[in-house]
Design a protein around this nucleic acid. Structure first.
Lengths: 134, 134
DNA sequence: CATGGTGTACTATTTAGATAGTATACCATG
DNA sequence: CATGGTATACTATCTAAATAGTACACCATG
């Protein structure tokens, strides 16, 4: 479980953490029963304040994604994978919708918009390929 | 020149204003020499504080998009359209890249990602059609 | 049973964004 | 030349996000 925080991502740090944990569970990288990094450990690794991590974990517990194991840490619940897969689609769709809406309001035609999207998808698959092959 | 502000857009209000003015110029809705709505007028229309509008306009002047006409208001410069068309692509690409990158990190395959994008593009063109026809 | 690692709670401080209110300098208009 | 609309500057206040530091309750481990 590796957290990568981008301070000027638009999203608050605690929200980035929430999303990344959900995504890790959705993708199977984190499985039910597994422990999430401790508040202090995650904070150190992400160069972020422990309170910020604690806030993210508090939200994840409130949503039923994590449960507390006394004296041990926070574990992924049994229901989390199904829930997180739904969340993943929902969260990504929402951000995508906002961006595409702004693009439409900017006066771009649908064709120009599709070109933009294609360009970014190509760039993305290229960097993905490099990551996989090296 | 109509400003539509979404308080929970992720972007700060002053930034939304900056972008919308640039987009209006890029699309030709605002042309060189034309006056932008006054700070007070824009603030009232968008239900926002005049200082927030003033901050956005200050940035637009610093970028050479608007120039001050003493005692009259702020006018679009001659160089603005070319500049704003470049900016439009740049600003949209940046946001789009962030979203697609997050989607890739979430474990979605490229095929699933493309499906998501297609779905949102379809929803978008549908609402566009409604806007145009009604 | 003491140690050390868990999460949690609490208060205080800092920063950015936004609001509120006031004051000022400018000038087109009548 | 007075009026009113323009941008601008300034201080103060408010909120959310993030940081900082401290303290506490819990319990697995040795």
């Amino acid at each position: 479980m590796l957290l990568t925080i981008d301070p000027n991502n638009g999203l608050p740090i605690y929200d980035q953490i929430v999303r990344q944990v959900k995504f890790a569970i959705a993708s199977g990288a984190l499985r039910p029963g597994e422990l999430v990094p401790s508040v202090r450990e995650a904070a150190k690794q992400a160069a972020v304040n422990p309170n910020t991590v604690a806030r993210a974990y508090r939200e994840l517990q409130a949503e039923g994604v994590l449960r507390r194991v006394r004296g041990t840490g926070l574990a992924v619940t049994e229901d989390a994978p199904a829930y997180c897969r739904k969340e993943r689609v929902k969260l990504l769709e929402e951000r995508l919708r906002q961006v595409l809406e702004e693009a439409a309001q900017s006066g771009l035609s649908e064709a120009e918009l599709r070109q933009l999207v294609e360009k970014q998808l190509r760039l993305l698959s290229r960097s993905r390929g490099r990551r996989g092959s090296s």
